[in-house]
């Protein structure tokens, strides 16, 4: 989003917010017309600044140091397996999964915690992985759609999505499947209305909601009949 900062030309927009950073701040009365897109040195300047801060803070506070801003070692437990990566603190769990681990089931769609396509399960709860830092997911159990069922088999939720045509283009589908899985794990006997309420964090553009409603109810029935869940 390189086109955002220079809008902070209004007199009040800087100051206390630290928005855009002082290194990019145009002087008062500077008109937009004169603006320069994505001004230089922004990144490296902020890196220097944080290094200074780190040195100031770390010595006084044993056990409360800071890491980064450069790449740091991050260990994630994904589908029961420990994975080590070297990423900057700013890397999201979604980007870590997709770009570093080639686990691309979770999708990047809104990238702002608005659509649910990136849903994974963190310590039993569905979360928007686009808005969880990878470094913050350490020590937690991360379930992704890749770990839902053994290779070559389908989890009952995925199967119900097939059987009820609860997917068209399929790009939102893994997020829906994970949200449903997380929900059914805790609510094995949902009503139709509860199913709808449980999916108010996932959007579909093709319009597959009719199939999804049926699929969740059917998956719930099959999973409880089997006496357990995958």
């Amino acid at each position: 989003m390189p086109d955002q900062d220079e809008r902070h030309d209004s007199p009040e927009s800087e100051g206390s917010d630290g928005e855009a950073g002082s290194d990019q701040k145009p002087s008062k009365g500077f008109s937009r017309r004169q603006f320069i897109k994505g001004t230089g040195l922004a990144v490296s300047a902020s890196v220097f600044a944080t290094e200074g801060l780190l040195k100031a803070a770390a010595p006084d506070q044993a056990g409360a140091g800071v890491e980064g801003p450069g790449a740091v070692k991050v260990q994630l437990r994904i589908n029961g397996q420990l994975r080590q990566l070297q990423v900057e603190p700013r890397v999201t769990l979604l980007d870590a999964l997709r770009n570093r681990l080639d686990m691309t089931g979770a999708k990047k769609v809104c990238d702002r915690a608005s659509c649910g396509a990136c849903t994974v399960i963190l310590d039993g709860r569905p979360v928007y992985s686009c808005t969880v830092l990878a470094i913050d997911a350490q020590g937690k159990s991360i379930e992704t759609i890749e770990g839902l069922a053994p290779k070559g088999t389908l989890h009952p939720v995925s199967q119900a999505f097939v059987d009820n045509d609860a997917q068209q283009c399929g790009f939102c589908t893994p997020g829906f499947v994970m949200a449903v899985k997380a929900y059914l794990d805790k609510h094995p006997h949902p009503t139709a209305d509860e199913v709808k309420a449980s999916l108010n964090g996932n959007l579909c553009r093709c319009g597959t909601y009719m199939g999804v409603r049926q699929a969740v109810l059917e998956a719930a029935t099959k999973m409880t009949r089997k006496g357990g869940r995958a």
Binding site: D17, G21, V43, L54, G63, A64, V66, P89
Partner: peptide, 30 residues
């Protein structure tokens, strides 16, 4: 997103010490 450093304190006092007097120095991540 710009790079930032990440603190993961276990006490409130540690957390407070990691914050700065200006908003752009540090932010609380919940």
């Amino acid at each position: 997103m710009r790079p930032f450093e990440y603190g993961n304190p276990s006490t409130v006092a540690q957390a407070v010490a990691l914050l700065g007097p200006q908003w752009d120095e540090a932010a609380v991540l919940a």
